[in-house]
Design a protein around this nucleic acid. Structure first.
Length: 644
DNA sequence: CGTTAAGCAATTTTT
DNA sequence: TTGCTTAACG
């Protein structure tokens, strides 16, 4: 080793000094080659990712602009950025770090022509998508009871997630023929509207790369290093995109945990991580590193989690372990009924609070949101501060979407989704009949709803068109903030909201004002709209208390990535968890089991599993479920049955 | 066309 | 039970 090499070694030593051997191996893998980092729960995967990026830049002199780091959620992307910044104390010009959608959206804004989009294309969210599909199906006179629009949306999205366009598909039966017809019509409407849905963002990017060799070469040349977080959650299209961009020439560093794959139902393919080694080793060697040392949980908790997940077949294989000695057994409580279960949990929580455990160190995890109610009531009654995760996020609120739809329509009148949303909000005498005429003409002449509307003689409609046209002129010289303010007042949304109830109107008003203030940060309306849709905001919480230290209630799915000293997994019954719907197929139970594994590995110190002999589901129906198979699978020596 | 009552289904969630 | 969608009515 020469002196210069020694110098660079010293410079980067700080990157590896707090790492355990496996983490160190992962971070310092050779520049060339792919890597599969199998990162168990609580094994420090974000640390490995950020340190790997820093290592590439500092130790190997890789340009930041040659690195692309991809996550699934904005939260994860932001955390990555923050941690990178803290670690490196410098700007990283040209480094792309974001979500799959964020990165591909950025790509499309640059290369819209290659993607056959117009410069001002806009994104629509699943709500917009669904109303568009609903409209299409209504026009096609499809009975929504027999063929729900949700199913059609699913059909479209799941095919797009596999990279499959309508024209590439052929129907094998009547049902498929119908879904395909909707898919075709939907694609046409989106193109006329200059709109892309979430899956389309990825599909367009993928196709743009695939069909433009020059562009592909440019990006293959640029991103020599692609890092993917939560790889077990990638769907077919994302996997294709990774392979196309980086599978042959580049170096792909993937981090994930097949045992934490819980999103199969929305297209994630656990097979992607299972077959990564085989597929990617065709061009460059793949090194596998397994991070099994767990810094989170006690031995009894890990032993239970390990034994449970060992029931699954086709795992990549991994056993979490810890240095930490001791730890209490996992506690099982058999409640008489749902109320009794809630009482027990709340009593245990009170006990922990008395022993000075902060409320936010405690979590109640359940399979479905409806299960939160009993716990909420009991917490309220006992005056324990709590927060429940879930609900409508800021940019998904009706009033926000209404106002933004006005902005969208004024910027781009061909935006069919925006048109549908506000054509009669507030009510302006344009009902279903008129709408049918509009959509029929639009269908026949293959024009947007807006263009179609021009051709109809209808006083209310003419008035509406005149208004929008006038607003288009009015807002041109205004800043986004003023544009929104103007549209809000002109649209008479205020008086519309006031008709429902005073309290609701007040909340809506507050949200609108918040939106208008937030709009200051944006150059133009299009930027604001894209941001609003791609980053709809944090998951909202419902709380009974302003305090910081609230007991946390959430679904098992939303608990992924989090940790709590004290965890209650409730409703551990065959039929609730695993759900009835999963009992008919082994692969569904396997995913439920992974969900249980995720839940258990959230706990740091103490884990309670509870179930009830009977409970009231929905209204008055009493149901009784057997104890969950996931409890029966636990090792006797690490569990303790709680008697009261 | 807009309002209201009745009917009906009922995981998990991000972008 | 809740929340949403549709059919019937004014």
């Amino acid at each position: 080793m020469n002196k210069i090499e020694q110098l660079t070694q010293a410079n980067t030593a700080f990157l590896t000094k707090d790492l355990n051997p496996a983490q160190q191996e992962a971070v310092t893998l050779p520049v060339e080659g792919h890597a599969l980092i199998l990162a168990g729960a609580g094994s420090g995967k974000t640390k490995v990712l950020t340190h790997r990026i820093a290592w590439l830049i500092l130790h190997h002199n890789i340009a930041p602009s040659a690195i692309c780091s991809v996550t699934f959620t904005n939260k994860a992307a932001n955390e990555m950025k923050t941690r990178l910044h803290t670690l490196m104390q410098q700007e990283l010009p040209g480094l792309w770090c974001g979500t799959f959608h964020g990165i591909n959206h950025r790509f499309l804004r640059i290369h819209y022509e290659h993607a056959k989009l117009s410069k001002t294309f806009q994104i629509m969210d699943s709500d917009d998508q669904l109303s568009l599909i609903r409209r299409i199906m209504r026009d096609l006179q499809i009975d929504p009871k027999i063929n729900p629009p949700k199913t059609a949306a699913n059909f479209i999205n799941s095919h797009k997630d596999q990279g499959l366009r309508a024209y590439t598909l052929s129907a094998q039966n009547n049902w498929e023929a119908l879904q395909l017809e909707v898919y075709h019509r939907y694609e046409l409407l989106c193109n006329q509207s200059n709109l892309v849905d979430f899956a389309e963002i990825l599909l367009r990017s993928y196709e743009a790369l695939k069909e433009n060799l020059e562009l592909l070469k440019q990006y293959q040349g640029r991103f020599s290093h692609l890092l993917i977080d939560e790889f077990q959650d990638t769907n077919t299209l994302q996997y294709k995109w990774i392979k196309l961009l980086n599978g042959t020439l580049g170096n792909t560093f993937i981090v994930g945990d097949d045992d934490q794959s819980i999103y199969g139902w929305r297209g994630a393919k656990i097979e992607n991580i299972q077959s990564f080694n085989k597929e990617f080793s065709k061009y460059k060697p793949v090194t596998e590193v397994c991070l099994e040392q767990n810094y989170r949980s006690t031995k009894p908790i890990l032993s239970c989690a390990n034994q449970l997940i060992a029931k699954n077949e086709d795992r990549l294989g991994k056993n979490l372990w810890t240095n930490i000695e001791g730890g209490e057994a996992v506690k099982i409580y058999a409640a008489v009924n749902g109320h009794n279960e809630a009482d027990f949990v709340i009593k245990e929580i009170e006990h922990a609070l008395e022993n000075n455990m902060p409320g936010n160190h405690i979590a109640i995890l359940y399979r479905s949101n409806a299960q939160s109610r009993l716990f909420e009531e009991s917490l309220l009654k006992n005056k324990i501060p709590y927060t429940i995760y879930g609900g409508v996020r800021f940019f998904e609120r009706a009033e926000i979407k209404d106002l933004l739809a006005y902005l969208r329509l004024v910027i781009n009148p061909d935006d069919n989704a925006a048109f549908l949303r506000i054509i009669n909000t507030p009510p302006r005498g344009i009902g279903n009949k008129t709408l049918e005429t509009i959509t029929q003409i639009a269908n026949d002449e293959e024009v947007s709803y807006w263009q179609s509307a021009q051709k109809i003689k209808h006083p209310s409609l003419e008035k509406f068109i005149a208004l929008i046209t006038q607003w288009q002129k009015e807002i041109q010289k205004k800043e986004v903030e003023q544009q929104l303010d103007y549209l809000y007042k002109q649209s008479e949304l205020i008086s519309h909201y006031e008709k429902e109830s005073k309290e609701k109107a007040e909340i809506r008003e507050e949200n609108i004002q918040e939106l208008i203030i937030a709009a200051r940060e944006y150059e133009d309306g299009n930027e604001l709209i894209s941001h609003a849709i791609l980053e709809a905001g944090e998951q909202p919480v419902k709380t009974n208390h302003q305090a910081h230290e609230c007991v946390q209630l959430m679904t098992l799915h939303s608990s992924k990535g989090l940790e709590f000293p004290l965890v209650f997994m409730v409703g551990m019954e065959d039929g609730l968890f695993p759900t009835t719907r999963s009992l008919d197929a082994e692969h569904k139970i396997t995913e439920e089991r992974r969900l249980a594994y995720v839940g258990m590995t959230r706990a740091r110190e103490q884990l309670f599993l509870t179930f009830a002999g009977y409970r009231q589901l929905y209204g008055n129906q009493f149901s009784s479920f057997p104890v969950s198979r996931f409890i029966r699978d636990l090792p006797e020596e690490y569990i303790e049955i709680v008697e009261i």
